[in-house]
Write a protein that binds this DNA or RNA. Sequence first.
DNA 1: AGAAATATGTTGACACTGTCTACAGAATCG
DNA 2: CGATTCTGTAGACAGTGTCAACATATTTCT
Lengths: 218, 218
Amino acid sequence: MVFAPGLSVPPAPPSLGQRLIDVTVELVGREGIESLTLRRIARRAGVSHGAPLRHFDSLSDLLADVAAHGFRLLSARIDDYTGALSGDATASQRLGAAGRAYVRVAVENPGLFALMFRPDRLAHDNVLYRQDADAAFERLLRHVQSAQRAGWQADRDTRLLAGIVWSSVHGLATLWSQGTMQGPVPDASLDDALALSLDLLMASDPTRRTRPGDEPRP
Amino acid sequence: MVFAPGLSVPPAPPSLGQRLIDVTVELVGREGIESLTLRRIARRAGVSHGAPLRHFDSLSDLLADVAAHGFRLLSARIDDYTGALSGDATASQRLGAAGRAYVRVAVENPGLFALMFRPDRLAHDNVLYRQDADAAFERLLRHVQSAQRAGWQADRDTRLLAGIVWSSVHGLATLWSQGTMQGPVPDASLDDALALSLDLLMASDPTRRTRPGDEPRP
DNA sequence: AGAAATATGTTGACACTGTCTACAGAATCG
DNA sequence: CGATTCTGTAGACAGTGTCAACATATTTCT
């Protein structure tokens, strides 16, 4: 092994706290929310059933940290999707891309996404959760603001408008990712649904020429 | 007591099955979803902890029946709100009233509403649940259909369009009833949010003259 | 009517769960 | 070096969903 100071520092083994979060993320991804048991998480991490409580106040505290991780993932995906647009994309197109990222995260990580919006399973006093959730919303807020400056619904209250856009996308993401939509609207494609939803939202956008679902994707 | 055949038949005491459902509805209304325990429900109904399993396959089967009750309540409220409009109300106004009813049910019964959309706590093979949920959606579908016949988004696929309207209203109802919205949009009023949401949805409605949030309420 | 079958409740057991306390060893610090 | 804190283990406790055994009613059939 070569000695290269600052480069080959052996990666410190992640603390048990972090490993428990990783294990939980993997568990909720493979087996869903009902599998999220403190003892099961501990077992899978290879420690005794009492060990997690040395790092988290309670199960709901651990789950809140996991949910916070989900919000960080969401923010990253929003940045990916909006950043992948060409430089001359309109603000509304960027907002649409953010919405697309949101639904994608929900559908690709249904368990984690469900956990993120289940207040009865999350410690309400977890600061990381509130921080990262707020950061994701602020991202959306900035995109709404830009779209407004470009003329879309310019006279509306920005925060409320962002809340409505959020609601709209969140409803689609929720119903789709938990399979509820497949009952009443069985043979619809997610892309069609998403395109229609954004189309209704952006119906009054003066800058749009084509359907807002037609931007390139990353 | 007067003998009046057909009128004063002493009301048959509701079966334990029905009483368990009633108790659960009341419990979820006062103490939320985390309180929904088979043993606790049995205790409150005054029977032993094993009794409920003579009437339901499992806790999740009982909860699915309770959720079905919630969907029946939802359908009734939608009919109330749309039926209270004057005879010359437009189809879009009726659709808006249905959306208002949806959000109202969610906000006034947050625990029950949360239960209705929590697939991990409901028996997926409960027929009553699927029936009553479908019935509620069909109601919405008919209102969307009427609005389309009146010219709103007439060229869209009706079921998909109904799914999008549902999503939009459902997102607002969910985030508001579970208090998530009060974080990012603290001082917004539900009426303003609802009005704005319906306004965006109905932006392209040719029959509307005023803001669609302005119809009378029952 | 009487017997058989079914329905509906109780009780106790089992394997789980979250959380608490007591304990042990390691790391850190004064 | 001694004391203290950190981080893990092990056992206990109350609570959970579900099942089997048992006791009565109630209904059904002959």
